[in-house]
Design a protein around this nucleic acid. Structure first.
Length: 415
RNA sequence: GUGGGUGUAGCUCAGUUGGUUAGAGCGCCGGAUUGUGGAUCCGGAGGUCGCGGGUUCGAAACCCGUCACUCACCCCA
């Protein structure tokens, strides 16, 4: 049997209501907060991601779906949304406006990772980007939107963790100091962290191995190394969150994996998932626009992993639906008449269906039941000859004989 | 890339120290009810036991390999 590709999932009819639900709330809340939707291509030149995400990150080094185009140029399936949005914003001059540019997107992303709970090779993100201001109130607005998104979905027990990783200079100075601190402990920490010491020392701070946690207990914190600018900005963000009543917990060890992040970083986690507990995360990326050859433009955004959110949603989500009328036409003469009526009802905007596999009344009614019909319109050859039909209420089991002329009106009155 | 767990009907799973025809529940189809659904009862269809090799008189079971799924590491949303 042909199977789907590893790490790719079909979203089956049973689950699509969940997705519609998430998408509807995302559209509604983002729009309400003044964000406009942007739809960008699903693949770009590889260079865009290599430059923005960072050449030495795992994403770029080993997780991208990269392939040559027919002319030889290197293309990559988007592993995240921010880079593409910034590219589009620059290409279409969307920053030439006095106000902040606020955009949101929804769609699939691709990373070649080993699949596990809450982690897929094609996954979907809802993300927002606010470009053009470094006002801490924008940080608060973005974080609040993320928080409200989850609250509107009815998610429980969430934690918002927040930190400031400072600007590039802050971070470079700090990394020097951290390495100096860790150097004498290199023998003690786990093999992974020994490797991280040279590749990504910040990651050692959130290693889960107990020895490493112990070793870094007394480590200098990035927080203490923030420039005056960064730390007062961060304080304003925290004040803003407190003012609005969004609960947060400071996590001086919170680090982001993509190179473009700076200053405010945040992450929302749920205790009800497995190892992949982060359902939404983001932060400032004040240097990215410039890095992509745009004007110096501070910005902030977040991304939500929708598959992970779906895991937290009730399995059954149903939207209110208008009553369903089932056309139960059987017999040579009745079937074409019933089929025509089906079409006419649909034209009137009525939710109507039938089942061509069922040819006798018994199986037709069984189908009606399975489809959840509110009413069945029964029409056999007897009714066809007398130009009538029977309307059966499927819950009360009461039925009524009615002429074909009256039927449309009758159905509309029941709709 | 590394490690653990699991592969038996469409789905969820039993299957005794290796023993003859591999089971159940749900679902599906049919009948009881010749033109009236859901419940009940009865019947039926549906299986390369993941795949390949080995051990054995005999393998779904034991051994080796392989593939798939899954969880975790790593990384991240």
């Amino acid at each position: 049997m042909l199977r789907s590709i590893k790490g790719l999932k079909d979203i089956l009819p049973q689950q699509t209501p969940q997705w519609r639900y998430m998408e509807t709330i995302a559209h509604t809340l983002a729009t309400q907060s003044g964000f406009s939707e942007i739809r960008i291509p699903i693949f770009e030149f590889t260079e865009l991601y290599a430059r923005s995400i960072g050449g030495s990150t795992d994403i770029v080094e080993k997780e991208m779906y990269t392939f040559p185009d027919r002319d030889g140029s290197s293309l990559t399936l988007r592993p995240e949304g921010t880079a593409g949005v910034v590219r589009a914003v620059l290409e279409h001059h969307l920053l030439d406006s006095p106000s902040t540019r606020k955009l949101y997107y929804l769609g699939p992303m691709f990373r070649h990772e080993r699949p596990q709970a809450g982690r897929y090779r094609q996954f979907h993100q809802f993300g927002v980007e606010a470009l053009g201001t470094e006002d801490p109130l924008m940080d608060v607005e973005v974080i609040t939107l993320l928080w409200r998104f989850f609250c509107s979905l009815g998610l429980k027990d969430l934690t918002l963790q927040i930190n400031s990783i400072g600007n590039l200079q802050d971070r470079e100075k700090y990394i020097q100091e951290l390495k100096r601190f860790l150097f004498p402990k290199l023998e003690v920490i786990c093999g992974n962290c020994q490797r991280r010491y040279s590749t990504n020392p910040l990651r050692i701070l959130d290693c889960k191995v107990p020895i490493c946690q112990q070793a870094t207990q007394e480590a200098p914190t990035l927080f203490d190394h923030l420039s005056l600018d960064s730390s007062s900005h961060f304080q304003s963000v925290l004040d803003g969150l407190t003012g609005i009543g969004i609960p947060f917990s400071l996590n001086y060890r919170l680090v982001r994996g993509l190179d473009y992040y700076s200053r405010t970083t945040f992450e929302i986690t749920s205790p009800h998932l497995g190892a992949q507990s982060t359902i939404g995360a983001g932060g400032r990326y004040d240097g990215l626009v410039e890095l992509l050859q745009g004007p110096s433009t501070p910005a902030i955004g977040f991304a939500v992993g929708l598959e992970r959110v779906a895991l937290l949603l009730p399995e059954q989500i149903s939207f209110p639906q208008p009553p369903l009328f089932f056309l139960a036409g059987f017999g040579k003469e009745a079937r074409p008449i019933a089929f025509k009526l089906l079409h006419e009802l649909r034209e009137l905007g009525i939710r109507a269906d039938t089942d061509y596999k069922s040819t006798n009344l018994k199986s037709l009614l069984r189908s009606a039941d399975k489809l959840g019909a509110t009413y069945s319109i029964i029409m056999g050859d007897d009714e066809a000859r007398s130009k009538t039909a029977i309307i059966r209420n499927m819950t009360t089991k009461t039925q009524e004989l009615i002429t074909l002329e009256e039927i449309a009106q009758k159905v509309q009155s029941l709709n």
